[in-house]
Every structure is written in C-alpha cells, then in structure tokens.
C-alpha cells in the first residue's frame, strides 16, 4: 500500500442538527489529482474546508501521514502550512501588493529571509504569468489575475497538497481559461491536488480520480473514465446528463 498523504475516515460535519457531510471516506496519495464534483449544496466545499480545518469536523478523523490532525495536541497552523488552499473568492491580503502577498507567509510561517522569500515569490509568480504585476494591489487586478496570484501564494509555501475550492466559479468566462491552464501545468508537474470544481472538462481530462458527491455523501468515486464513461449510480448519471448539453471541452 502506498503512503497516503491524507486519509479521510468516516468524516462527518453537522451545522446544528443539519448534517452536511456523512461518513466521508477517501484517500489522497502523492501526485494524485482528485476532482470532487457534485451539485451545489452537496457538501463539496465544506469537505474541503474540513480538510483544512477551517471548519471543525464533528465526527470521524483526518489523518495526515497517518497522524490525526484534529484533537488537543495538534498544531493546526503547522498542519495548514503543508496543505495549501485556493479559495473561490481569492482571499488575497488587501493590505499588501501582489509580491508581498506571496512573501508574507514564507517570512512569518517558514521564517525565510526576505531576499530568499522574494526570489521564491518571483519564481512562482513567473510560473503563473503574473511577473509584470508584482507591484499592484489586489484591488487593481482582475479576478483571473487574483486567482493566479493566490495560486502562486499557496505554491510559495511548498505545500504537499493543494486544495482548490471552486477556483474558477467567481470568474468571468474568459478568465476561467487562464486559471485552468495554470492548474493543468501544476498537475503536469506532479503536484498533488484536490479540486472542487464545476469544470467537467478539467475533471475529466486532468484528474486521476473523480469523486461525485450528493447530499453530503460520496455517491460514487473512480477514474474519470469510469465516472464520465460509465457511471454506475443513477444520481451520477442524472447529474452528468445536465452537463452533457454543455460541451466537455
């Protein structure tokens, strides 16, 4: 059995009496690109937020390299620094420039020297094609550009896994492409990624594993060929048929 980076076991989450996630089980291994698809409100985002401990799971456990990440003696901040997250609403720090956004985490959390942090930030900003804008503030650049900076900011922390929470849902259609291209190139570089997305073409072409969620449970999971080619469950088939009208490329 290969070493799993993340193991999610019987995870559940309730807001009050309302159960959002029930008995979620899956694993993430190094180099995997896993897409989580499903209708709005099916708990995809909550699952991702639970994995990054932005929400506290109400049951089950999350193992990071075999060690539980919830509990009394766990340093959540330390764990989060290994698990990057890209948000639907970018969440760039508004009080800093693009370059500073990518440097602050390295300097404060990883205690890197300023010039080292700068060099790394520039490397990743170049990777996402944002080098010309390093002096801009988040309010001065477009959504797609913000998201690319957010990806560079996460990458600069050298995370083992990168979580994407609907990274293209808040973008204008013409900007979706630039962000997806960055994500495709990351996947090609062997980055371990867990992507919540409505971009079916991306899920089909890039991911190694697809998880379909429905009403807070994992309805079906498998390779893209299995899920998109021959879905076993009627819910999956019905969900995918709604996307058939749209072309998958």
């Amino acid at each position: 059995m290969s070493e799993h980076i993340l193991e999610i076991r019987h995870l559940s989450k309730c807001f009050g009496s309302h159960g959002v996630l029930t008995d979620i089980d899956f694993t993430v291994s190094a180099g995997d690109v896993t897409s989580i698809i499903g209708a709005s409100g099916s708990g995809k985002s909550t699952l991702l937020r639970c994995i990054n401990l932005l929400e506290t799971p109400t049951g089950g456990e999350i193992l990071y390299h075999g060690r539980p990440v919830t509990g009394a003696n766990v340093n959540a901040a330390e764990y989060r620094s290994h698990v990057g997250m890209v948000f639907q609403s970018f969440n760039l720090f508004n009080n800093m420039t693009v370059l500073e956004n990518c440097m602050v985490g390295q300097m404060k959390v990883l205690h890197k020297k300023k010039f080292e942090a700068r060099e790394r930030a520039l490397y990743y900003l170049e990777k996402v094609g944002m080098t010309p804008y390093i002096n801009a503030r988040p309010r001065q650049i477009s959504g797609g550009q913000k998201q690319r900076v957010a990806i560079a900011r996460s990458l600069a922390m050298d995370p083992e896994v990168l979580l994407f929470d609907e990274p293209t849902s808040a973008l204008d259609p013409e900007m979706v492409g630039e962000v997806l291209n960055v994500m495709r190139s990351l996947a090609a570089d062997g980055m371990t990624m867990l992507v919540v997305t409505h971009e079916m073409a991306f899920a089909r072409d890039v991911s190694k594993k697809v998880v379909y969620m429905n009403n807070g449970v994992i309805c079906e999971q498998g390779t893209p060929e299995e899920i998109f080619g021959a879905p076993k469950r009627p819910e999956t088939r019905e969900f995918l048929s709604r996307f058939i009208g749209k072309s998958l490329d």
Partner: peptide
Amino acid sequence: DPGQTEGAKAIGMTHFQTMTSVILPQ
C-alpha cells in the same frame, strides 16, 4: 471580510500573525 482570516490561516499563520500582518493593518 472573514476571507482574509481564512486566507491567512490557510497558509499556516497563527492567530497572532494573522492579526498583526493581515487583519489589524486593514
């Protein structure tokens, strides 16, 4: 915006770092 806190937490900042570098300046 709570997103600012989440962004800072997500890159592993502690509460104190989040406050002093991101939230309080704003």
